[in-house]
Write a protein that binds this DNA or RNA. Structure first.
Lengths: 334, 334
DNA sequence: CTGAAAGCGCTAACAT
DNA sequence: ATGTTAGCGCTTTCAG
């Protein structure tokens, strides 16, 4: 059995209150007793029981994080930032893989609520009414990452998707491309789908370049496979295209693979710009030019916001800056 | 304030013991009272406090996981398996990023110990004496993943690295290659480094093919950059090489990129086989033939072992099967 | 500067 | 079938 504060008190000939005081560095003990207590703690190998502490202090020192997929290239970078910042602030993080499943998500929220986590970070998923109600019942700070809610007043941290898509498309335009298409993800995804298409469209229109819906090839998701499948279709409809904006790096890499099989050279025949700047993107052939989202920083920021809300009951949403990473998948024309 | 079991008891006109009984499905209540209790629980929105429960039951319902890097492609797959299985078994997982730092690791172990986690999963790192002592003091099951300890009796789950390297090299040989080199990771890494070189050497020797130390190009690590840097050096020393075994997929992908820049075609000029079967490997051009490690399954297995040890105080280490994944980076000669 | 004692919310005897 | 009560290990008044 682990020694308790009682054992320490007894062995050091003081009361448990005194032990508690030196443990928490609260006023009310002499240097002498402090030494004695510290020493017997050492001797006994005493370790305070965080659970008992949590019961008294009504906090668990942990923050829950909900991902639709933990093994995603993207999630792991966000998680990295979350874990780092949380640890700095003295918190642990519990990860939960919701698999984008409604029931599972609800169960996880319930679980985290029972564990009395001090805050919640909700990544990449839309917040529906049930989730929101559960959040409210928990009464702890909740912050959204890579997503936002139009219905509920939940603070978020993300980039401006529309603007970022605009930046990507404009880069293609500035590089001299005039016939530009898009490999979209899921257009029904209001957050990552619709808005990126919007930005794409706006860039084209402002540059007085042709735009039509057929210029964007939609998919159900944002994966490598989606990229593989969608490139041929887009090119079949629009063989004149020289530049492509892919809604995710994975899609872009998939498109590059598909192009390779088709004997199309990147960037000589077709230029491609991605979105995300995953580690993946520098490993492709050719290295992928893309829009970087500061995933790690976003994770850190989310924790900072959770903690701010916990203290101040208020925190503003944060729209993080994206930036262009020029590599070799886009050719400058003339 | 969250309602407590007291509130429920009062509102339902029963004692807290009764509420506790229906909550834990222990014998000793009528259907009638059960209904009543359940209903008032519903009405009050009562959620049991897992911290209080933990204090009484002396368990936290959580398992700690230590990674040298959470954002690694590999870690995230292991984590996926860990999280899934842990959740099925009613446990949560706390992730810790040690950054392979000694002090940090020690602090994390201490922290998890204070949080009274019910078990520990230790991934990809060597266990030194201080770690081991800390494990012992904790008195909870510890299982190693993708690593093992020669000094301490800690159960592990991994593949047979030497054998897997042998398999990879043999595949090259069976494909008709006679001049084969290796892009090793860190040879001072006893676990992932040394053993893979061994397997490589053994395969060559058994096939009566030339082997010398200069045939293996060492690096400090197993990254993409290492692959980029090491390919040219190996080829400079041994321009006759037609087949290469890379000690990790990342190294392999790096080598492919380097080859591309050098105008060397894969697999026409040189064949490459990797090690890991990360998602990455199917996205490369050409898709990478590699040795698959069942990362997800390993994560699951680790949790199963932790739980087994918790109950039976015994669990055997598990050497998981690896297997070859044939894709397009190796050419069959003649 | 130090100790006694009252909880934190719950489980598990032990009564009834 | 149900209630009473003693903790689990700790923090925090409140007294001295």
């Amino acid at each position: 059995m682990n020694p308790t504060i009682q054992d320490v008190a007894k062995a050091a000939n003081v009361s448990i209150a005194t032990v508690s005081r030196v443990l928490n560095n609260q006023p009310g003990f002499s240097q002498k007793t402090k030494q004695r207590v510290l020493q017997t703690i050492e001797e006994l190998g005493y370790q305070p029981n965080a659970i008992a502490r949590g019961l008294v202090n009504r906090n668990s020192g942990t923050i829950g994080v909900l991902f639709p997929s933990v093994s995603g290239l993207l999630s792991s970078e966000v998680l990295h930032g979350i874990e780092a910042r949380a640890n700095e602030e003295g918190y642990s993080v519990i990860v939960c893989n919701t698999a984008a499943d409604h029931e599972k998500t609800l169960r996880y929220i319930q679980l985290l609520s029972e564990k009395r986590v001090d805050g919640l970070v909700f990544v990449s998923e839309e917040v529906d009414e049930e989730y929101y109600k559960a959040f409210q019942r928990m009464g702890v700070p909740v912050v959204l990452v890579l997503t936002q809610s139009y219905k509920y007043p939940l603070p978020y941290v993300k980039v401006d998707d529309s603007h970022a898509a605009y930046t990507a498309t404009s880069y293609l335009i500035d590089s001299g491309h005039k016939r530009i298409g898009m490999l979209s993800g899921n257009p029904n995804d209001l957050l990552a789908g619709r808005t990126r298409i919007e930005g794409f469209k706006r860039a084209l229109l402002e540059a007085e370049l042709p735009y039509s819906e057929s210029l964007v090839e939609n998919q159900n998701s944002f994966t490598y496979e989606d990229g593989i499948n969608s490139l041929p279709r887009l090119l079949e409809r629009h063989p004149e295209i020289t530049g492509i904006f892919a809604a995710s790096d994975e899609i872009a890499i998939g498109a590059i693979s598909a192009a390779y099989k088709l004997g199309i050279r990147i960037p000589e025949d077709i230029s491609i710009i991605g979105y995300d700047n995953l580690k993946l993107s520098e490993m492709s052939i050719p290295p992928l030019t893309t829009i970087a989202q500061p995933f790690q920083r976003m994770g850190e920021k989310a924790i900072e916001m959770v903690l701010t809300i916990k203290n101040d009951k208020q925190a503003e949403s944060s729209v993080m800056p994206h930036h262009l990473v020029e590599r070799e998948s886009v050719k400058k024309i003339k």
